[in-house]
């Protein structure tokens, strides 16, 4: 019998726990040629701001062993162009689309939450309080529990849709941040965003990235992400989305054992645009092969 792969993510029903991570899947349509969008649980769109953003100068990307650094700088079309040009595509896709967004001030966060709340095609909101690549793109809000709580409260008041808060790993204690966001009204927590890192070109004696530092992602960060998901899962009641270096079904299932209700596939989609669909298929095959009837029975089932 086919295993039950569905999960309930804070009221968003996912056909399976595999989502795509913001900033790695465009607005969905870029991948329509490579992925059956109706084979994955949900997809998260590129982070939106009130006004369009240029992003950082290039080079914006560099590869390091087992991972990559990016400093895109939250380049995006802005909320108006999102509504005019990107939302119509979402209308015909029978998969929840979650809009990721960020602001420079608490008021901007709340305004975006209000605008996104009005869009029927948006199933849920993911608040980015954790981008490491812009001065006010969230990291201020993502590293101080008081600031994080004020952003989440303001967004909470502005939307009735499920509210996911994406946490930064660039903190001393991620559990403190997670609790602050849960107490402020988050329906779900997604973690981790990228780790701040850098790469140096020895010959030129310069940083490789124009932004000097960038966000580190890819399989190299998985052990850190797993640890943080496990810590947070023990500390909060809201469902968790595990993110960090997921390349295959084994990685995804490890996050679920650690306590994640769903996972987001990020860097893997760059390498293999069909990664999320493949991972969902392989997870189902693993459950079948291992006699697991329901994926929900694996959530937090880690034996320690």
């Amino acid at each position: 019998m086919k295993p039950d792969m569905s999960v309930n993510l804070a009221g968003i029903m996912l056909r399976n726990p595999v989502m795509t991570a913001s900033g790695t899947f465009g607005y969905g349509e870029e991948f329509a040629e490579y992925v059956n969008l109706e084979s994955i649980g949900a997809f998260v769109t590129k982070g939106l701001s009130l006004k369009p953003r240029a992003g950082n100068p290039t080079p914006r990307i560099v590869e390091t062993p087992g991972g990559m650094l990016n400093a895109i700088g939250l380049q995006n079309v802005g909320i108006d162009a999102f509504i005019a040009k990107k939302v119509p595509f979402l209308r015909n896709v029978n998969t929840p689309a979650i809009a990721n967004f960020f602001g420079n001030t608490v008021d901007e966060y709340a305004e975006l939450a209000r605008r996104l709340d009005e869009i029927p095609e948006v199933a849920g909101l993911e608040v980015n309080i954790s981008c490491p690549n812009v001065k006010q793109g969230g990291i201020v809000f993502g590293t101080d529990p008081g600031c994080a709580a004020s952003v989440v409260s303001a967004c909470r008041a502005a939307t009735k849709k499920p509210l996911i808060v994406k946490l930064s790993p660039n903190v001393t204690d991620v559990v403190v941040m997670a609790r602050a966001c849960e107490d402020a009204g988050a329906d779900s927590l997604s973690l981790i965003n990228t780790l701040t890192g850098m790469a140096i070109d020895l010959g030129r004696r310069r940083p490789v990235l124009a932004n000097i530092t960038g966000g580190f992602s890819g399989p190299a960060i998985k052990p850190i992400a797993l640890r943080m998901v496990w810590q947070v899962a023990k500390a909060v009641k809201v469902p968790i989305i595990g993110i960090g270096g997921i390349m295959n079904a084994t990685d995804a299932l490890e996050f679920i054992l650690a306590g994640a209700t769903a996972v987001q596939v990020g860097t893997a989609s760059f390498i293999n645009p069909g990664a999320a669909q493949q991972i969902a298929g392989e997870m189902e095959a693993w459950l079948l092969a291992n006699g697991v009837a329901d994926i929900k029975s694996l959530i937090g089932a880690l034996e320690v």
């Binding site: 900033g23 040629e33 490579y34 290039t58 914006r60 990307i61 895109i72 390498i271 645009p273």
Partner: peptide
Amino acid sequence: EGYMACGVGACLGCVAPGRGHSAETPDF
């Protein structure tokens, strides 16, 4: 040429500035 991760327009790593590009009027 550009440093790119995906090749399909998602990573935004490989952008080049358009003629009218400036910080105020982004055109990548």
